[in-house]
Amino acid sequence: MNAVMKHRLFWPVVVLLALILVNTLSRPSFVSITVQDGRLYGSLIDILRNSAPLMLVALGMTLVIATRGIDLSVGAVMAVSGAVALQIIQDSGDAANPSVLAVAIGAGLLAGLACGLWNGFLIAVLGIQPIIATLVLMLAGRGIALLITRGFITTINSDPYKFMAQGYVVGLPFAFYVSLAAIAIVAVIERRTALGVLTEAVGINPEASRLAGVRARGIIWGAYAASGLLAGFAGLLYSSNIMAADANAAGLYIELDAILAVVLGGTSLAGGTFSLAGTVVGVFTIQTLKSTITFLGVPPAVTPVFMAAVVVLVVLIQSSRFRRWVGRLGGRLSVRSAQPVERTEVAS
């Protein structure tokens, strides 16, 4: 039991399960899954489907944070890639043509990759601080997206394109398979090659890594490129979901959710050792939290406040210092100790 509790994923998983439990208690239908036409429906399935864009972005963010960096531009990159893809489809006039779709998707991904390469260039080659370097594109990206869509919200009508975010394969949402594939690919690239450990080395001590012959520059550049590419894909999923390229709304504030997911998953913002599994748990936690908000009918106006309160709570639960403090309090007051935490949870 002790070994289980010491595992770095223990608290993130506990938090996720607690959230699901709270939801289930307040509305038992939360965990129910129904089958219609061989497709699964239910809140949990929605979470799997809706979390896909955030999953992609957060995976990229994990790699960037492991190098001691941060990528604020992911939301704007989503807007760019969505704009590129949809504009191509709209301009072609043949929204169902597979080759047009292939070109559009390819161009959207390339646009994301280009954004990531730009960030990486500023950071790894020119040595600009990550927060500043990515702030550039965070602000400029939406402008670029608007330029591409000529100032409008580009809308299309294309069933194959729609399939990406809304389609089903073997009973589960296609977007969920995209998530799974991204997790698997990133995990294999990081852990089956030496990229993961070299990334951690660079994140912990860049100078020592350089002296050990690690190509620190290439690794950092690669992390931003990957983040851009993944954000590009997330942008396609987003545009497929609403069948529109909305430069101002696409991926708005997703960088904050992504950073939060990474941190909830136990990866330190100081860089170094990272946990992809932790990020996955973190993403599901955030997505569950969002459903909770909808579920409980929290008025949209106070949603950020509610979200902030829960996040603070979650972070406190994961803080070993806070747990020790509660433990000490428990030792002194025996019964009353654990109640404040529980009460807040129930109140939520």
Binding site: L198, E200, A201, I204, N205, E207, A208, L211
Partner: peptide, 19 residues
């Protein structure tokens, strides 16, 4: 300028060779 403190002995020893 030498060790990667938080990484293990194993990872530190193999780092340069791996790089």
């Amino acid at each position: 300028e030498g060790l990667i403190g938080e990484l293990s002995v194993l990872e530190n020893i193999t780092l340069a060779l791996q790089a």
